[in-house]
């Protein structure tokens, strides 16, 4: 597990991942571990973005493909950078397939803008906020929402409002 001590007050620590050239952040407190892409067992009759289940040391954990979730076509060929981020949502473990996990950063809470401060887009309910880090913009997702609703979300919806 990637962890560098608990963040100081007024600071958040984010695991940064990449999806289709866009940078996203997840609060490190939500992340259980990051795995290399492993074999996924497909499950019939589920939403398209549910890739299937994996064996995490004997636990059966469902895995969501974030590319499919946001309507981005699959990458061509095998990508060795591909990772599965295991997070905990409402007491259950869920894996997220992302293009790559790049780093863990700390940033002050005040440099995170919440969607209500900006022009609210139609799908802002899936976004916790946008973090400004140097000249980079990190979209911080509301993972519970994204995983538990059936609603279609596209990447452009997430980008729309900032």
């Amino acid at each position: 597990m990637v962890k560098e001590g608990s963040p100081a007050k007024g600071e958040i620590q984010l695991v940064v991942f990449n999806l289709h050239g866009e940078e996203f952040g997840i609060d490190i407190g939500q992340v259980k571990e990051v795995l290399k892409y492993t074999q996924v067992t497909h499950i019939p009759h589920t939403a398209e973005y549910v890739e299937g289940v994996i064996n995490l040391r004997g636990e059966v954990v469902p895995v969501v493909n974030l590319r499919n979730r946001f309507g981005i076509p699959d990458q061509e060929g095998e990508d060795l950078n591909q990772r599965i981020i295991i997070i905990e949502v409402e007491g259950d473990l869920v894996g997220l397939i992302v293009d790559s996990v790049t780093e863990v950063i700390r940033m002050p809470v005040r440099s995170v803008e919440s969607p209500s401060d900006t022009v609210a887009g139609s799908k802002s309910e899936f976004v916790e906020g946008v973090g400004k880090y140097d000249d980079r913009l990190l979209i911080i997702l509301k993972l519970e929402k994204i995983i538990t609703t059936e609603e279609r979300i596209s990447l452009s919806d997430l980008q729309d409002w900032y």
Binding site: Q39, T41, P44, H45, N55, G58, V60, P62, L93, I147
Partner: peptide, 27 residues
């Protein structure tokens, strides 16, 4: 027998999952 968790609850035709000896997950 392992449950598939809340997210995948109530799937038609699938009662659960199990981990096989080779580490693969079978439904």
């Amino acid at each position: 027998i392992k449950s598939l968790g809340k997210i995948l609850e109530g799937l038609k035709g699938i009662a659960g999952a199990t981990v096989l000896a080779n580490g693969e997950v079978a439904l």
